[in-house]
Computed example of a mutant assay.
Amino acid sequence: MQNLKLKIRNLFRSRKINVFLLFFVLAFLILVLTKLSKVYTGTLSFKVKPKHVNATHVIVNTDKPALNITFETNGFNWLKYAITRPELDIDFEKDVSKKDSMLIWSVSKGYSNINNQFSIDKKIISINPDTLLFRFDVNDVKLVPVVLNIDIDYAQGFNTLDNIKTTPDSVKLIGPSTVLKKIKKIETQKLKLSNVKANIDQLVMLNLDSINDIKTNMKQVSLSINVSKFSEGIVELPIEIINIPAGKTINYFPKHVSLSYTTSLENYNNITSQDFKVICNYEDASEVSYLTPSVVKQPKDVKNIRLLQQKIEFIITE
């Protein structure tokens, strides 16, 4: 037994057997390459994928249509298709005609598009079936506003003069009219920003979990906020009384109120007391013994407006 093992070991160690195995492997590879280089004809089934479907059309086929394509190509390509097989695009914009509630694809219209999806070394012999039928339903289109769901906390002394909104500020929804009627807005996913002291420029995902039966042209929107260093300002403003009854005179105190506001440092020197106006409406004092001042004019580039005097005492003289 030991002698037999020794002879086998010596046989594999010999140069002759190594040369034989090398030539055997080379001959086998040449045979395989020769076979794969030859051209064969066969038929394969390819699933199709709708492309450029009208936004208001929804394909409702329960099964996925397929095309049986007979073509000539070399063995390398047949080997590739045995491993993986791509889906073929059906161009609904160019190659499909509409009849009643059906969209009809035909070889006569769609052959060129199918042929272009195969490389030049694949020659199509035939395509079956010669027509594909796609049932569809018609949906409505509705544009709804995007509502930003944001909790933003600026760092001390920082803020923005922007009206915070997204780009775009609305989203197109496609679906059954009965469902679309109930949708008034689309919120973004919750966004929390803390200690903000620099410009914001990022994408925010839309919250689409509650509209599973609805299609939309986007899943995210852009958010841009210009953040600036802010400073507080205070102005003294005269009070104007309106709607005083004829024949009556109002004596009130104080005659001026202080108003505080914040604005960006870049805009601070552009703000003056002339940009604001404060009034008291006498008609609002019918049930109380004081007047309430309110701001009826202010510049657009200020925030956090606050009147430091909330009650104006008055007496009536005939």
Results as ranks from 00 to 15, higher is better:
T62E: 13
V221Y: 02
Q310D: 15
A246R: 08
K35R: 10
Q309G: 04
L173M: 06
L259W: 02
H256G: 00
G42H: 10
T70C: 03
W105H: 09
I315N: 13
I183G: 05
L223M: 07
E72I: 01
C280E: 07
L33R: 01
S14H: 03
K94F: 05
K277A: 14
T34I: 06
S101N: 13
S258F: 11
R15Q: 07
S289A: 12
T43M: 12
V138F: 05
T34L: 11
T249L: 09
D209R: 03
A198F: 06
M1S: 08
L259R: 02
F253Y: 15
N18V: 03
S260N: 08
E266Y: 11
I114G: 05
K99W: 00
K172H: 03
L203K: 14
L133M: 11
S194Y: 07
F230S: 07
K192W: 02
R135T: 10
K172G: 00
L132C: 07
D140I: 01
L44W: 08
K142L: 09
T188I: 09
V146K: 04
T56H: 02
I186T: 04
T41S: 15
S170H: 13
I8V: 03
N128C: 08
E187S: 13
Y81S: 03
Q298I: 00
A198R: 12
K16M: 00
I125S: 09
D213K: 11
K248D: 12
T188N: 07
K7H: 01
E287I: 09
E232T: 15
L133R: 09
F71R: 04
V53R: 08
P176D: 07
E313C: 02
Q298C: 01
I127W: 12
V179C: 00
G233K: 14
K297S: 11
I271N: 11
V48K: 07
A55N: 06
L291H: 11
F92I: 07
G247M: 08
N267D: 14
D162K: 02
K16N: 01
S106H: 02
N10W: 02
N61C: 06
G157A: 09
V53H: 06
T70Y: 05
S97E: 12
T73L: 06
V25P: 01
V25R: 03
G247K: 13
K277F: 05
K109C: 01
P238H: 07
S106A: 03
Y268S: 11
K35N: 07
D213S: 14
R13F: 00
N54R: 05
Q189L: 14
Q309A: 12
I8M: 00
K80C: 03
V257G: 05
I124G: 11
I174M: 15
F12V: 00
S177L: 08
V295Q: 08
L33E: 04
L180F: 01
L6P: 01
I312E: 12
A55E: 11
I124A: 11
D301L: 08
V107W: 08
R135C: 01
Y154S: 13
K311L: 06
H256I: 04
